[in-house]
Design a protein around this nucleic acid. Structure first.
Lengths: 247, 247
DNA sequence: GCAAAAGTGTTGGAAATACACCCATGT
DNA sequence: ACATGGGTGTATTTCCAACACTTTTGC
């Protein structure tokens, strides 16, 4: 990055560290925050974690989980910290999506927010902190969030829908052992479509990233399905060539 | 976004505007910048605009075009401003890619940078401002940039390679009227591959987004090719369904 | 035995790939 | 005439979509 004071077109324009430091200090009137869109999957529905806004102005509205980034904190670390504080969880899939920087997006002042999304397995981690009515909402019912959180949510949801088709993210929403039916329900919930069961199975078996655990479901009121887990190490070694122009 | 002072677990935690404002002000010790990776295409090579770093510490290194975001400036606007200042151009394709926020990425202090990339047609806009040795570099020769600009560049280049296959971005790098050979050269340069000429043509004709201008190239030392332009309005009306799970 | 979901194959069409020859122009 | 790239067609393969019946288990 280069600093360009207005009107300065001198080509011998070299700055000492001290000059740059004072430029940085005089310009840092912008606060930085992180907002997390945390997706989960339960009862064959895609869910998202929301809380009641703790700002008076948005008192009746739902809001994403976020916080200001501390001056000495990496932004990715801030996202992990928020996840940890809100869900008690570490080591989750977390992806930066977009940075929202409209001037008036936040009533408290100029706050630029970096949006992340994360996927967590609802079964494995019951929520322990329930402040501000923290709980899971069906993604379909998410409307009219506080701040510009609706836009952030929509962006993250769209990103998830795209990513889940290109990368095996979805497995982190499922139990360690899952049936193909559960996997298909997950994809149908995320993408909002119905898929042909036979073709779905064919596709996943052809990928050859599922490990047959030689176990079957229990306590289901019908013929139990076989259980699988995802072969991450095999997936990591694959080298996909991705040339395919298609608008 | 929600503010969560450490240790505060009161579920009636509602904040007035004044409280939030003071929180924002006490935390805004982070400067925000924008860095632009500006791609062009010339002589069948993909190019990128770089300048010499104007910081003493990186004096011999090349650097991306960037600047601090002003406190009252939208981040997208800042990116357009930088483009305008550096190239004299408006109304360009510009896409936000990623935000880089490591603690020590900038020697002048805590600076978080939002990366954008842009595509411009080198033929149409000769550079008029040449401060800091601004000029076009072959993307293949870009190494060892100042700051963390190598990482930013790599991220943007990878993003371009992906996007150009899904959206008709490439046309903004070409003249208004172009031959299919030029189009293919562009794709080959961006993706770094060789493509079969006949299949390439078949694919683009099948898409049916090219308008045949009934004109031919001039001053070429061989049989001249037909000229086309891209049918943006038809492209906008298309509704692509994009279900296709494929890791 | 009945309900409910598991499991399994085939076929036809579409799209991608591989590949070779003639044509138009400038020199 | 020749060098250069423009322009075209076909055969093959691969992938995807559509579609129906039998099997296993719980009740």
């Amino acid at each position: 990055m280069t600093f360009m004071p207005d009107g300065n077109s001198n080509s011998k324009n070299v700055k000492t560290l001290k000059i740059v430091q004072s430029e940085v200090q005089s310009t840092n009137k912008i606060a930085l925050s992180v907002d997390c869109v945390i997706f989960g999957f339960d009862e064959n529905k895609l869910k998202v974690l929301l809380i009641r806004s703790d700002m008076k102005k948005f008192q009746s509205k739902w809001s994403l989980l976020g916080d200001l980034v501390k001056p000495e904190e990496d932004i990715d670390s801030a996202a992990y910290r928020i996840l940890k504080q809100r869900t008690g969880l570490d080591h989750l899939y977390l992806e930066q999506v977009h940075t929202f920087g409209s001037i008036n997006r936040h009533p408290g002042g100029r706050v630029v927010s970096v949006a992340y999304y994360s996927l967590i397995n609802i079964q494995h981690h019951k929520l322990k902190i329930l402040d501000n009515e923290l709980h899971w909402h069906d993604v379909d019912s998410v409307t009219d969030l506080a701040f510009d959180h609706q836009e952030i949510f929509d962006t993250c949801y769209t990103r998830l829908q795209k990513r889940v088709q290109e990368h095996p993210l979805g497995f982190s929403l499922l139990p360690n052992k899952f049936s193909l039916r559960e996997l298909q329900n997950l994809y149908e919930a995320i993408l909002g479509v119905k898929l042909d069961r036979r073709n779905f199975r064919k596709k996943f078996f052809a990928m050859d990233f599922l490990i047959d655990l030689d176990e079957i479901e229990e306590n289901v009121p019908h013929r139990p399905g076989k259980l699988y887990k995802f072969n991450y190490s095999k997936y990591e070694k694959r080298n996909k060539k991705w040339i395919g122009i298609d608008f």
